[in-house]
Simulated scan of single mutants.
Amino acid sequence: MKPILILFLFALVLPLSAHAASTDKTVKAQIEKCETKYKVDKTKKAECIKKVKKASSKKAESTSVKESKSKTNLQADKAAASSTTTKKALKAVNVNKATATELAASLPGVGDKKAQAIIDYRKKNGKFKSAADLEKVPGLGQKSVAGMKKYLKF
């Protein structure tokens, strides 16, 4: 899958960089035309250059919008791919006996840091007797504990 992403990126980036270089040359050429055409009249020359720059910035904005949409789609694809490979095996776990790794793997909304906070709190304050005790753990609130209640054993 990775070679496909790399090829996709090259197919996307190379034409855009070539387009940017040709756009710069075009803008410079148009500015030179303004300078030659209005050599004597500085006001008209300045207006002409201003119009050229304004037109090129609009084109650059539309290109950057297209680029950001492409990047967003690519990021969404990556996120979707990674979420399918890293889904948790949600299962009931005894919060008084489980390791941090087991807690992180088994409970929804609990990653490595929260799992370690649960372990640290348990070591400091003793065993958990109910889900309400888990709400006292820094980083866990009513909502997160409510979401994991059906996976908790004491």
Score class of each variant (00 low, 15 high):
A79F: 04
N73Q: 08
I31Y: 03
A20H: 04
K91N: 15
V52Y: 00
A80W: 08
Q30W: 00
I31F: 03
Q30K: 11
L5Y: 05
K45T: 06
K51N: 06
F8H: 01
V52L: 04
I6C: 05
K127E: 11
L152P: 14
S22L: 04
K129I: 01
K150C: 04
P15D: 05
Y121W: 12
S64N: 11
P138H: 01
V13A: 11
D133T: 08
S68K: 14
K25F: 03
D77C: 02
S83R: 13
A46W: 05
V13G: 03
V27T: 10
S56Y: 02
Y151M: 14
K66S: 11
A11M: 06
K149P: 13
A92D: 10
Y38S: 04
E61V: 07
K59M: 02
R122K: 09
C34E: 02
A60S: 05
K123T: 07
K87L: 09
D112L: 03
K150F: 05
I49Q: 08
K88T: 13
S106H: 09
K127H: 08
S62V: 08
S70L: 10
A60R: 07
L134I: 05
K69Y: 07
A132I: 00
T63E: 15
A92V: 14
F154I: 05
K37R: 13
K37E: 12
A146P: 07
A80L: 11
L134V: 10
E61R: 15
A104V: 05
E61D: 09
D77E: 05
A105L: 03
E47K: 13
P108L: 09
C34K: 06
A92W: 06
L9S: 06
A80C: 03
K149W: 14
N125G: 03
K51P: 02
A76H: 08
V27Y: 00
E61S: 09
T86N: 14
P108C: 07
A117C: 07
V145N: 13
S106E: 09
V27D: 02
A117D: 11
K143M: 06
A80G: 15
V110F: 15
T72I: 01
L134E: 10
L9G: 02
A21V: 04
G126S: 04
L134F: 12
S70M: 11
V145M: 12
F8D: 01
I118N: 09
I31R: 01
V27K: 05
E32G: 01
L103P: 15
K2F: 14
K114E: 10
G141M: 11
K50D: 12
K69A: 13
I49A: 12
Y121A: 12
C34W: 04
G126V: 04
V65I: 12
T23K: 02
K33A: 08
Q116L: 15
E47L: 10
L140D: 08
L152A: 11
V95P: 10
K91I: 05
S106C: 09
A100T: 14
G111M: 08
E32C: 00
K69N: 11
V52F: 00
N125D: 00
N96V: 04
N73L: 13
S22I: 01
A60D: 05
K129M: 00
S57V: 12
A55G: 07
E35F: 01
K50L: 06
Y121C: 09
G109L: 15
T43P: 00
E135R: 08
T84I: 07
L107Q: 13
A79P: 01
G111W: 00
A115L: 12
